[in-house]
């Protein structure tokens, strides 16, 4: 493909045009990341008077800390729960909207709305709905004999944050799934119908495999979302509790660093998270093109 190439006569203009983006990246991404790396190999004393170089000791301690390992496990449960719930519901909604002829657009618009809600607001919203004293859902659950209390029960708390986090992400997944469904040629589905496949069979043997590139892309995006973008939701609902039950990695960074003021450990945790997100990004870029199975 022929692309038009602009050449600049001087040096300063191209650099000036790039500068805003470069400056933002440097200040808000590279510098903090560098700080985290630097801090992760240091340890401060209680009063903040002395800083010593400890090498990888912060990391070693984390790997031996049962609280940190517990947090990893909780993150896994949370990420898998959020991803599966939001993707499954989004796919269901997308299929239903795709089958509609009229009012498809209005439904799409409504389904996209939650995405515009800030995580903290989403958290508060679900906090109200699930509030053990004044919430509507615990009241209804009580009628069927379930005593909901996410302040006491770790399981309840985990379910709450998963629902709140998934609810927000459904919109995003929905848009992608709907676009994917609309790009499946109608003639394939007709051919399958003539070939004697039932509706369900057509979906699982024809449509779903054709969605696999999108499904894989969303899988990675959702894991990243659940692991890194859900701080606001956790903070507004459970604050990591009860008893560490929803203290996922990204929230623990904040708790240990800014509440507990253990900067070295907190920095080491961010470095671990950084590694995870880099790995996920690499997977995303390397395999997203190749995982197309047709």
């Amino acid at each position: 493909m022929q692309t038009k190439r602009t050449t600049f006569s001087g040096y300063w203009l191209p650099y000036a045009l790039l500068a805003p983006q470069v400056i933002i990246t440097l200040i808000f991404f590279i510098w903090p990341a560098g700080q985290a790396l630097y801090q992760s190999v240091l340890r401060q004393d209680i009063f903040g008077l002395r800083v010593t170089f400890v090498g990888l000791d912060n990391f070693r301690r984390l790997m031996e800390d049962p609280l940190y390992l517990n947090s990893m496990q909780m993150t896994l449960v949370f990420a898998v729960g959020t991803t599966v719930l939001s993707m499954a519901l989004a796919l269901l909604f997308a299929v239903m909207v795709n089958n509609m002829i009229r009012s498809r657009d209005s439904y799409s618009t409504l389904l996209v709305w939650p995405y515009a809600v800030a995580p903290a607001i989403a958290g508060v919203l679900w906090w109200f709905i699930f509030n053990p004293s004044i919430g509507i859902l615990p009241y209804m659950l009580d009628m069927v004999g379930y005593d909901w209390n996410h302040r006491r029960s770790g399981t309840d708390a985990m379910i709450l944050v998963i629902i709140a986090a998934a609810w927000k992400q459904i919109s995003y997944n929905f848009i992608f799934f709907l676009a994917g469904l609309q790009s499946v040629p109608q003639s394939l589905i007709e051919a399958a119908a003539i070939d004697g496949a039932s509706r369900a069979k057509r979906f699982w043997t024809i449509v779903f495999p054709l969605l696999s590139p999108i499904t894989f892309f969303l899988l990675v995006v959702n894991i990243v979302y659940a692991m890194f973008d859900t701080f606001g939701i956790i903070h507004a609902t459970t604050e990591g509790g009860p008893a560490q039950a929803t203290n996922i990695l990204v929230y623990k960074v904040y708790r240990d660093g800014f509440v507990g003021l253990n900067l070295g450990s907190s920095a080491a945790q961010s470095v671990i998270l950084m590694t995870i997100v880099i790995a996920l990004t690499v997977i995303q870029f390397r395999y997203i093109e190749r995982r197309v199975n047709y």
């Binding site: 394939l188 003539i194 495999p209 054709l210 696999s212 199975n293 047709y294």
Partner: peptide
């Protein structure tokens, strides 16, 4: 359509892109 005992060849062929030729033929 499946109950009419017909088979159809489409303009764009409508082959199942994720299946091998064998499976395309065997699907029905």
């Amino acid at each position: 359509p499946a109950e009419r005992d017909i088979a159809m060849v489409f303009q764009n062929y409508a082959l199942y892109p994720h299946m091998s030729v064998f499976n395309n033929l065997a699907y029905g």
